[in-house]
């Protein structure tokens, strides 16, 4: 088996508060291989973004990694600090944020932002850096890149700006891209283009992608494998086709049911009753059990099984029985 680009094992993020310690990410494990897109789905607050931020070391205080390991290309990165961590960011891991309108510094030209990023990671001359900047803009499909390199972010449309953001994330040729809701803030018509762009670039370059989204349509479109998160835990992890067509976790089933795309043709959308519990109100047992139509006594008292990084399993006592 080829060694994965990213390996996350038992990752736990904690936020100490006055009353208790919250765990927005709880013993999460997964792998992403080169050229593979892992879609991470879940409701807002499920811990998707927090997981992405933990991988790139961008957790805001007081949140911190409290357990587990993160391996990138065979090197452990979760304990890096200062300059070592900074050199991983951008150089080995690129990140794409949700809102392209606010991700770019309004007072610097896109060329300046690209060049500074390239020069901080690669030992190249100013002219060479600018050359590379133009190339990377060309690659993400900015027309007339050589002329537009001196333009300011506000001179681009939202979709074009997200292309610039992707160019910035990729310009130092990282082996992993974390894309945190990259299409949520865009027009529907532009969303597909951006997803197609991400997909093409990563397959061409063999970049691993962690694609965080709450949009099952995006997952269906782009992901090779899917990780479903619920209340900070991994609920289900498996190849996209299997998870989408034969969900094993009751939550995934519910999630499919409430997505217009997946339930097309059905009479009406199935909704999951209730809402995700707040992190400080988690009951013992499976976090989904209060909303789970299949929940049994066991689910409410025993901690649910932890999901390992292997494929195709759901963190559920009833896994496999539900789908039928």
């Amino acid at each position: 088996m080829v060694e994965p680009v990213l390996s996350v094992r038992g990752l736990t993020v904690e936020i100490p508060t006055r009353h208790s310690v919250l765990r927005p990410v709880d013993t999460v494990s997964f792998d992403i291989a080169a050229g593979e897109i892992l879609g991470v789905v879940g409701e807002s607050g499920a811990g998707k973004s927090m997981t992405g931020n933990a991988v790139i070391g961008l957790l805001d205080r007081p949140a911190h990694i409290a357990g587990g390991e993160i391996w990138l290309n065979g090197e452990r990165i979760d304990q890096l600090k200062g300059d070592a961590l900074r050199q991983v960011r951008g150089k080995h891991i690129g990140m794409v944020f949700q809102d392209p309108l606010t991700s770019l510094n309004p007072l610097l030209t896109i060329g300046q932002q690209l060049v500074e990023t390239i020069q901080v990671h690669l030992d190249v001359s100013g002219a060479e850096a600018k050359n590379r900047a133009v190339n990377s803009l060309n690659e993400v499909g900015i027309p007339a890149a050589a002329e537009r390199i001196d333009a300011y972010p506000h001179q681009f449309s939202g979709g074009m700006r997200q292309r610039v953001v992707i160019a910035l994330a990729l310009c130092a040729e990282p082996s992993l891209i974390i894309a945190d809701e990259p299409t949520t803030a865009l027009d529907v018509s532009v969303q597909a283009q951006i997803i197609a762009l991400l997909k093409r670039l990563c397959h061409e370059r063999g970049t691993a992608v962690m694609l965080i989204t709450h949009d099952m349509g995006v997952i269906a479109e782009a992901a090779d494998r899917v990780a479903v998160m619920y209340a900070g835990r991994m609920a289900e992890l498996g190849p996209a086709r299997e998870v989408l067509t034969k969900p094993a976790h009751p939550y995934t089933v519910g999630l499919m049911g409430s997505t217009p795309l997946a339930s097309a043709g059905k009479e009406r959308l199935n909704q999951i009753e209730g809402s995700m519990p707040r992190l400080d109100e988690l009951q013992p047992g499976c976090a989904f059990s209060p909303r789970c139509p299949y929940a049994q006594h066991k689910c409410r008292i025993e901690p649910r099984p932890t999901l390992e990084a292997h494929e195709g399993r759901a963190a559920c006592w009833l896994a496999g029985e539900v789908a039928e």
Binding site: R89, G90, I93, N105
Partner: peptide, 15 residues
Amino acid sequence: DYIRFARARGLKERA
């Protein structure tokens, strides 16, 4: 956001 993004790109603190 653009400061977070700048951090995520590995720019130096001073920059």
